[in-house]
Design a binder for these strands. Structure first.
Length: 260
DNA sequence: CCTAGTTTTCCTGTTT
DNA sequence: GAAACAGGAAAACTAG
């Protein structure tokens, strides 16, 4: 878990990077980085005054907390290395295929599954692909979801489960929470993406879509506002809140904090 | 086959 | 300037 990576020294250094003096931090009497984080986010104003910084500054510092690996040489970078030990599936490189030159990236890398079965749909796709000439557009509109070439069975196999349920389940899994996504305020259902692109890749894995990005995932998240599965949280980046129509999201031990 | 709901993709504009 | 946020459009897919 994240907190296991932090020594007290790391914490003081991290605060120092925000210009906050060590002595002030020592007075806070925290037991772990998770403990500290919760204390501060529960009453930003109070702790901001204790630490002698603005609430806004402290909020920003808190926002960055879980995205910072204290053992990395570079400062406050993406939390890619903060995975629990032994979690190999998560260790795979999230590589960016630079398919930016293609007008239709899905033609190249969208469905690279070798198992193109003898589905009629698939065969047709096979026939019309590789149009010798570069980038001959096959679709009338540039927008919209590209058609799948997987068989119906194949699609069904991977497609059940709503996005919000997937997100909810990540929050209940110590493999992903709080390293990739974490609770900001569990009682109120407020949570935050710690590593937005990695969560998007996970979602893409589930849907067999290597082109999933946080940009696209977040659009789907915003649609949930209308159905009140999620409620908008303003002025907080990467933060969402479960709404009245989301169920089963509460957990016994949010963020899997170690009691110590 | 039709429909409603969901998701993916893309885009333009705004905010942080 | 980069990342996020906001939504509108359009297309694909699911479930019923």
């Amino acid at each position: 878990m994240v907190n296991s990576l932090w020594t007290r020294e790391n914490i003081f250094n991290w605060f120092a990077s925000y210009g906050i003096e060590r002595s002030r931090v020592e007075e806070l009497n925290f037991t772990s980085v998770d403990d500290l984080y919760r204390m501060m986010t529960n009453d930003i104003d109070l702790y901001a005054s204790k630490l002698g910084v603005s609430s806004l500054e402290l909020q920003k510092a808190c926002d960055d907390l879980y995205g910072y690996n204290p053992h990395s040489s570079s400062f406050r970078q993406d939390a890619g290395h903060v995975f629990p030990a032994g979690n190999h599936e998560m260790m795979h490189e999230v590589k960016q295929e630079s398919s930016s030159q293609l007008d239709y990236p899905w033609e190249q890398s969208y469905y690279k599954e070798e198992d193109l079965s003898t589905d009629g749909e698939a065969e047709e796709f096979e026939k019309q692909e590789k149009p010798q000439v570069q980038q001959a557009p096959r679709r009338t509109g540039k927008r919209g979801r590209p058609p799948s070439i997987l068989t119906k069975a194949k699609r069904r196999e991977k497609s059940h489960g709503k996005l919000w349920e997937f997100i909810r389940d990540l929050l209940k899994d110590p493999k992903y929470c709080p390293s990739l996504i974490c609770w900001e305020n569990h009682d109120d259902g407020v949570f935050r993406f710690v590593s937005s692109e990695k969560v998007a890749k996970l979602w893409g894995d589930k849907r067999k879509n290597t082109n999933m990005t946080y940009e696209k995932l977040s659009r789907a998240m915003r649609y949930y506002y209308k159905s009140q599965i999620l409620l908008p949280v303003t002025h907080r980046r990467l933060v969402y809140k479960f709404g009245p129509n989301a169920v089963n999201w509460r957990c016994e031990n949010p963020n899997f904090a170690r009691l110590s």
